[in-house]
Design a protein around this nucleic acid. Structure first.
Length: 646
RNA sequence: GCCGAUGUAGCUCAGUGGUAGAGCACUUCCUUGGUAAGGAAGAGGUCACGGGUUCAAGUCCCGUCAUUGGCUCCA
């Protein structure tokens, strides 16, 4: 029999008979791999494990453990979901069912029917029943006309639209059991691989994501090859729920909302404000060291300011509407951005090249009219404060300044325990130029500067085309929190446009006028969003240096209240924040309450401690740490605070 | 903005058409204690708001507002 050469990812080459399948190749490696192999890439193309290989090829085998494996697993699960939905709701129109980051969904047109959460259980049960049939996924080619005929019969205008955009000869259907769906392929060997499923959500979604199109019903689910994995996933969801910043924000009395004030307008309570102030001071110090100067600008600006900046043209209709003055025909806008104000500060006096880079920083509060459906806790609000700064520099300084900003962002992340992050570089969509302001030449320069800086700093990067702001490309930091969820925090953006619009100039060493470049940057992003992410990351257990109460003193009985206050005064002299819990409660109750409030240290003062000026130290979540003198304790936690470790 | 769900005491929630409930928190009293809830009593609600059906509505219907899960959007 004819032999072909198969190249493995590690570069090894082995010979197999022509027509060998990825499954057989896996089997030749090990039985275990054969059992677990889900999908394969042959010459970089995703195929079923039963697809014969007829010529020399490179191969990559994937199990559940890989991203590729999960995607195929979930995509296949979407087929089973569609089969299940069709079973319960005959006559529905299937549309698309992709795998997503955590699971999959299927969009269907239910017509008059609807699905509610009470239906999830029966869907899950039937789904698993179908899965247990171990039906093979079979890919078959169909001609365009046959495909169109099938969906014409079913009057499924969605599939017809999809097929019309496909090339005849490249159209495939996937069958399993007696269920057929239009599909380009990449499936599990059979449905039996799916051992556990959870329907997670049902929601409306527009056909092709366009709000002018018909709204479909989207059913979300997640599936696993083992029941235990589902249980672990559900536990993770539970944990995420416990850490939800909206819940903890309420419990720890950090912030609140009021209908009377307005939706999306957070009210910071004393404890939240204290936390936020500490973060701001931390940033102010870091910025001072990095050569920034502070400025302050008002919350409103004349409409002309934003006409000049271009924001009015771009967002005016979707913003809070202008404020009118009573006498004159003047219009002001709540500021949606700080940069136009900062441009005018730059313009307030002539600048020399010796003045650059000029780094203007402000905790500037801005207001944006976000759609009501998008508001969410502190992460998406209508009024928020950016830790904003604008760097005005020469062209030849851009890359260097960009790198300095990256250093600052990384310093901030490390101080707050965010150690897992990637940099997302957002470039323009070159096909869609009318979306952007500015010349091609400037965009080119800006994009290159970002890529170079990120590369030089050794950042893990992902490039996204079409995600740039309308005025320039940007680099966003995506951090992973303690539960592995991704959040967008700090942002750095190069801007060649505002300097032109505001006619910013400096005098160069050649005594000629030059245009500076602007860099917008916000390491936290916004205080609101950052605090929300921080709460969820640490589950409300803030790093010691940020905690409102670093220690609470717990007198054993009211007899020791005075002594506890005396010891607290000593700790205050070391700049340690704390309180005395002088309520008429037993020690067990006081400890319980302090634990629930997530106070880092509990210091118990009873007869023994009172006599010797000592503290019985108990650490949050850890328990008894023994007895220390006030000085020993103060030294220990001062060290912890200084190191910015927990 | 669109589709769905939800809205009862400060918080978490129960209450399927017949006079508003529990636990925690709060107030007062008793208790003075050694590492996650000591005991008793009390106070606290136009059941989101506005209409409707009914002898009777927290409960059923309609509308509004807010919250929430998605979609769309995100300077």
């Amino acid at each position: 029999m004819e032999q072909i050469k198969i190249t493995f990812p590690d570069g090894k080459v082995k010979e197999y008979p022509k027509g060998v399948t990825p499954f057989e190749i896996a089997k030749s490696v090990s039985e275990g791999l054969a059992r677990e192999v889900i999908t394969a890439k042959v010459n970089g193309k995703t195929v079923e494990t039963v697809t014969p290989i007829n010529s020399d090829a490179s191969i990559q085998l994937y199990t559940w453990e890989s991203e590729e494996g999960k995607q195929v697993f979930w995509h296949s699960s979407a087929h089973i979901l569609a089969q299940t939905l069709e079973f319960f709701y005959p006559g529905i129109k299937l549309t698309i069912g992709p795998a997503i980051e955590n699971g999959f969904y299927y969009d269907v047109d239910l017509g008059e029917k609807n699905i509610s959460e009470s239906d999830f259980k029966k869907i899950e049960e039937k789904f698993l029943e179908f899965a247990r049939q171990k039906a093979e996924f079979k890919i078959k080619s169909v001609s365009k006309s046959d495909a169109l005929n099938l969906y014409n019969e079913q009057q499924n205008e969605f599939k017809i639209e999809l097929i019309e955009n496909l090339t005849d000869g490249e159209i495939t259907f996937c069958d399993h059991s007696n269920f057929t769906d239009l599909c380009r392929g990449g499936h599990l060997p059979n449905t039996g691989f799916v051992k556990a499923v959870k329907i997670t959500n049902v929601a409306g979604a527009y056909w092709r994501g366009n709000e002018k199109n018909k709204q479909l019903t989207r059913v979300y689910g997640i599936s696993f090859p083992k029941q235990k994995m589902l249980e672990e996933y559900l536990l993770l969801l539970e944990e995420a729920k416990k850490r939800d910043h909206r819940k903890l924000g309420k419990e720890l009395e950090l912030f609140t909302f009021s209908q009377k004030v307005g939706q999306g307008l957070p009210l910071w309570l004393p404890k939240g404000a204290a936390l936020r102030e500490r973060l701001e001071n931390f940033m102010r110090n870091a910025q001072k060291k990095a050569g920034y100067v502070s400025v302050v600008t008002p919350h409103i600006g004349s409409k002309e300011l934003y006409v000049t900046s271009g924001h009015y043209e771009k967002y005016g209709a979707d913003s809070f509407q202008p404020i009118h003055t009573p006498d004159e025909n003047e219009e002001f806008l709540l500021k949606p951005m700080n940069c136009p104000h900062h441009c005018e500060i730059f313009n307030s006096s002539p600048k020399s090249y010796k003045d650059l880079p000029l780094r203007l920083a402000e905790f500037g509060t801005v207001y944006r009219y976000e759609q009501s459906g998008e508001l969410h806790g502190l992460t998406r609000v209508r009024g928020f404060t950016q830790d904003d700064a604008h760097i005005f520099c020469r062209n030849d300084q851009v890359e260097d300044e960009f790198k300095k900003v990256i250093d600052l962002v990384l310093y901030v992340f490390s101080a707050l325990g965010f150690n897992d992050y990637t940099a997302q570089i957002s470039l323009r969509d070159k096909e869609n130029r009318e979306k952007y302001i500015g010349t091609d030449e400037n965009w080119e320069k800006a994009e290159q500067a970002i890529i170079n800086a990120a590369h030089d700093k050794g950042l893990k990067t992902e490039v996204e085309f079409g995600e740039a702001a309308f005025y320039g490309p940007k680099l966003d930091f995506m951090v992973k929190d303690a539960l592995g969820r991704k959040w967008q925090l700090g942002t750095i953006q190069v801007d060649y446009n505002l300097p032109e619009r505001f006619n910013l100039e400096y005098t160069g060493s050649d005594n000629q006028k030059h245009r500076p470049v602007m860099i917008h940057r916000a390491p936290f992003g916004s205080m609101e969003r950052f605090v929300a992410v921080l709460i969820e990351h640490c589950g409300g257990n803030f790093p010691l240096w940020l905690s409102n109460e670093q220690a609470v003193l717990l007198p054993i009985s009211e007899k020791f209240n005075e002594k506890a206050q005396e010891l607290l005064n000593l700790l205050n002299n070391y700049d340690i924040r704390g309180l005395v819990d002088n309520r008429n409660e037993k020690i067990g109750k006081k400890i319980r309450d302090a634990e629930l409030k997530k106070v880092p240290y509990m210091l118990i003062v009873g007869e023994k401690e009172a006599e010797t000026n000592t503290l019985a130290v108990r650490k949050h979540g850890k328990g008894d740490m023994g007895v220390l003198t006030v000085e020993e304790f103060a030294t220990m936690i001062k060290k912890e605070i200084k190191e910015h470790t927990n």
